[in-house]
Design a protein around this nucleic acid. Structure first.
Length: 897
RNA sequence: GCUCGCUUAGCUCAGUGGUAGAGCACACGCUUCACACGCGUGGGGUCGUAGGUUCAAGUCCUACAGCGAGCACCA
């Protein structure tokens, strides 16, 4: 068998995915156990406009690790993929295209435009899906869903109608966030608050009618004064008490406006008097309603001044109008002052245009009503369980406690059209279909609402709509509630909370048991990766450079941590993949006569010490990995497997077993040793598979003896693949603490001798003699029977073991645990002064530690109050140190002669 | 303004009240028959600062500093 020395990830990456998919490994139907527990995940549907970024790769890796792990556990596993139509983004994308062609959506008309968007979606919307295949994502493609699919659209209409019938969805006038560039309303969550550091606060004076008095108000938006219909002061403010109820004359405009008292006004802030513009400010809107103030709209949808703003202002841009207003006030002597002021402005989350609060008629959802059940679920059952719990459980709960109405309608064409129809008289009919609406209206002469729904409206239904709701499908019954939701923190409100709302509302059950919030990946300098900064690291480039598996295991390891990306991490796991490759290469080059599975044969008591040891280590690694994955602690899981594989298996086990495994002549003992190595390797590949699917499959298939036997019982009918192998279960009976202790002694001996060789400058090729002593017979037996292994590992010509040492004075020595000692005769090489110094340093180290321990043991409070077990442990250590110190002292004394 | 998080080796990060860790980087030595994407050895930390609780604090509490995030209707 030809096996290259270096692992080439591309080979495996190209070879296995299509086969897995073709054999149906990703679909839950592969599981033939009717009693199998169910495990399900729905993917956060990426935008059709999107291409894969590191955040996706992180989320997908976590989901794939979970899916593959549970599948190997024999669970009926579904990971459902899909994409989101992404209303605004997609529409903007296509509109840009049209602009290049010299046309526009308005020129095309609604139907033609939508045709173009669908065309675009078919052509480019699949990019992210093919990128997911590259990642190795084990999603069930047969269940792929798109938010505009007929089934999902039906769910959207059902949701809308039911909420309307409950009175939770309504149409009405409200002050909404308007993006003057995208020409649509936006919900509060689609607006970003951005700090404006170089802002200005203008102090404007309004004359009191029939008096010389002036009231000063402060504003960051002077142009809105054209729409002022009152000035408000605090009811508790003595300074203005006599003014309440009096009239002001609005400068420039000349309108007479009242002074009202409202509790909203903070007398401590600014001048204590606030201009009130009900049509253009959320707070003023509320105050306007409380005091029944007129609403004067002075800014339009394009952020230009209206006719109502006055002839001089009409048609001006809002910023031009601002300058002009300020100029006029100055001319009138009514501009008191302009102060530098830091405040925050609202920007469109998509195009960063400054939002204009506008009065308009839109559809709204009373989220507070829908949020009650999720809130109860959290309070009573603490569900869903957030990972990490802090801070997300609280963030989620706090948001649910303060819900505002959700502006649902968008003035776009791409999306789910609002299922509301109007007759000629303007009466509205909300229905699941146009036929229904006609029946309700008693006429065919209806016009459908022009607007579409917020993209997140359909996303809110994702876990149930993808599984077939509102129908009671088998999928819905089987896979809902889903097991876990994996996503980034920025959509906890936009998406996570809302899925919980609809899920609980329509099924009575939570949408998912757990919510796993991934960390954020920053660039090397700690900056958020973004398109505009062009500092993003492209996952595909990293895949290309280091391999998919290496990238995945790094991402899994990152998990919930915010981290700065650095390639060196991936490089080190690329090296790990190569290490796995070469360990397997060694096993395979020495596999004649051996078979996977036979490694467990025979009574463990009869196995070689190093075999008992590696099997024990394997069980612990298996146990710890399982526990870590179950606890979503992927970092710990990766560390466990990494160190088991590299340190235990490669550095020690392969070296300790080499003489047996690579013996020149065939024998049952050699077969057994080879089988053992192969079996441990095979088990390790299974542990690694969820993290590194490609290399594990590539190697696993090459192992002699793998087949149906290794598959989980639920998959016995399937073609052999490590993907469907049973995830290892720890076998407690193979945990052997004694063997672990003995190998630890052996490892210590080898390490100390290697240290002596390096420090004393023994040439690498030169063999040394070892004189080993151990007072304990059992320990002596370990060294005696391991003499050949020790000799091989330290390049010794001889390893003499006895109950005491009589070594030449010209020897380097080391004291070991359990009172053991080793001497390496180094005639001619040893410099006595140097050796004395080396040993002296060690004695000093021991001395310091002894001092600390003695102090603690001398403390009656410690001995009295600490657990007896801790005290005993410390006494044991103290004795061990004392013994070593004594032995070192003797050695030093002997050297001094 | 409120809430929360982070601060551990040169870098990126683990760390469960009981002997401070990993990978990379660094230094020295190695063509040792799986692997130089490797092997062996070594150096490197007042765990942000100051208090407190405790027999014992990187770990728990308080304050402060720096960095970051989220929320909020302060004109």
């Amino acid at each position: 068998m030809e096996i290259p020395k270096a692992y080439d990830p591309k080979l495996a990456e190209e070879r296995h995915y299509a086969r897995w998919e073709a054999q149906g490994c990703f679909a839950p139907e592969i599981n033939r156990d009717p009693a199998a527990p169910v495990y399900s995940i729905v993917i956060p549907p990426p935008n059709v406009t999107g291409s894969l970024h590191m955040g996706h790769a992180l989320q997908h890796t976590i989901m794939d690790v979970l899916a593959r792990y549970h599948r190997m556990r024999g669970h009926r596993t579904l990971w459902l993929p899909g994409t989101d139509h992404a209303g605004i983004s997609t529409q903007i994308q296509v509109e840009k295209l049209l602009k290049k062609e010299g046309t526009s959506r308005h020129e095309l008309g609604r139907d033609k435009f939508l045709e173009r968007v669908w065309e675009w979606k078919e052509r480019y919307g699949g990019e992210i899906l093919s990128q997911m295949r590259r990642e190795g994502a084990s999603v069930d493609w047969s269940r792929h869903r798109f938010t505009l699919d007929e089934g999902l659209s039906r769910a959207v209409r059902e949701f809308f109608v039911r909420m309307y019938e409950k009175g939770w969805i309504y149409r009405g006038e409200g002050l909404i966030n308007w993006c003057p560039k995208d020409q649509t309303a936006l919900s509060d969550l689609e607006v970003d608050k951005v700090t404006k550091k170089d802002g200005q606060l203008f102090y404007l004076q309004y004359p009191v009618k029939g008096s010389d008095r002036r009231v000063t108000v402060a504003t960051t938006r002077p142009e809105t004064m054209l729409g002022d219909t009152a000035v408000a002061v605090s009811p508790k403010d003595a300074r203005y008490a006599d003014l309440v109820g009096r009239t002001l004359v609005l400068p420039v405009v000349g309108r007479e406006i009242p002074v009202v008292a409202d509790h909203f006004v903070d007398p401590e802030f600014g001048t204590g008097a606030v201009k009130v513009t009900p049509a253009h400010d959320p707070n003023d809107y509320q105050m306007g309603r409380r005091h029944d103030l007129p609403q004067v709209k002075v800014i339009d949808q394009h952020a230009r001044m209206t006719v109502e703003a006055g002839r001089e202002f009409a048609g001006l841009d809002r910023y031009e109008a601002r300058a002009l207003v300020v100029e006029k006030f100055e001319a009138l002597g009514l501009l008191e002052r302009v102060a530098e002021y830091e405040f925050s402005i609202s920007q469109c989350g998509r195009c960063a245009t400054v939002i204009e609060p506008l009065l308009s008629v839109q559809w709204f959802l009373k989220q507070a009503a829908l949020g009650q059940k999720p809130l109860e679920l959290m309070r009573e059952q603490r569900a869903p369980h957030f990972v990490p719990e802090t801070p997300y459980e609280k963030v989620y709960t706090n948001w649910l406690e303060g819900l505002h109405d959700w502006t649902l309608s968008r003035q776009l064409w791409w999306g789910h059209r609002i299922p509301a129809w109007y007759d000629e008289a303007g009466n509205v009919y909300v229905a699941r279909t146009e036929e229904d609406a006609r029946r309700q209206a008693g006429t065919d002469d209806l016009t459908q609402d022009e607007d579409v729904l917020d993209t997140w409206f359909s996303s809110a239904l994702w876990p149930i709509s993808t599984l077939g709701w509102p129908d009671e499908t088998d999928d819905l019954k089987t896979f809902y509630p889903t097991s876990v939701l994996v996503t980034a923190r920025d959509i906890i409100f936009l998406w996570v909370a809302r899925m919980m709302m609809t899920g609980v509302e329509f099924t009575g059950e939570r949408a998912f048991d757990d919510v796993y919030i991934t960390g954020t990946i920053f660039d090397r300098h700690g900056q958020r990766m973004s398109k505009t900064k062009a500092n993003g690291v492209d996952p595909l480039v990293v895949f290309e450079k280091y391999g998919v598996d290496a990238t995945r295991i790094v991402l899994a390891s990152i998990g919930t941590t915010d981290t700065r990306w650095n390639d060196t991490q991936v490089e080190s796991y690329r090296n790990f993949a190569n290490k796995i490759w070469n360990a397997a290469r060694f096993c395979l080059l020495n596999s004649e006569g051996a078979q996977v599975g036979k490694g467990f044969a025979g009574e463990p008591k009869t196995w070689a010490l190093h075999d008992r040891w590696i099997m024990s280590r394997l069980q612990k690694a298996t146990r710890d990995t399982t526990q870590s994955i179950e606890a979503y602690d992927f970092h710990a899981a990766v560390q466990t497997i990494y160190h088991f594989f590299w340190d235990d298996f490669c550095d020690w086990y392969i070296e300790l077993s080499k003489a047996d495994v690579a013996a020149p002549d065939a024998s049952p003992a050699r077969d057994a040793a080879r089988s053992r190595a192969l079996t441990v390797l095979e088990q390790a590949l299974r542990l690694l598979h969820p993290f590194m699917p490609f290399i594990t499959e590539e190697l696993w298939l090459r192992l002699p003896g793998v087949g149906t036997d290794q598959l989980h019982a639920a998959y016995k009918h399937a073609e052999p693949t490590v993907m469907l192998a049973a995830f290892p279960q720890p076998r407690e009976e193979l945990i052997d603490e004694r063997a672990e202790g003995e190998i630890q002694s052996l490892v210590e001996l080898v390490s100390r001798v290697r240290n002596i060789r390096a420090e004393m400058g023994v040439r690498p090729g030169e063999a040394v003699r070892l004189l080993v002593s151990a007072p304990d017979a059992a320990l002596r037996a370990v060294f005696e029977s391991g003499a050949q292994q020790i000799a091989r590992l330290v390049r010794a010509s001889e390893v003499a073991v006895g109950d005491s040492i009589s070594a030449p004075k010209a020897s380097a020595r080391a004291v070991l645990a359990g009172g053991a000692e080793v001497a390496v005769p180094l005639e001619g090489l040893i410099d006595f002064a140097q050796e004395r110094e080396r040993l002296g340093k060690e004695r000093e180290k021991l001395g310091k530690e002894a001092e600390k321990i003695e102090a603690q043991l001398a403390n009656p409070n410690f001995v009295g109050r600490a657990p007896a077990e801790k005290v005993a442990e410390l006494r044991q250590r103290s004795e061990d140190i004392a013994q070593r110190t004594r032995m070192l002292a003797e050695t030093l004394e002997a050297l001094a002669d």
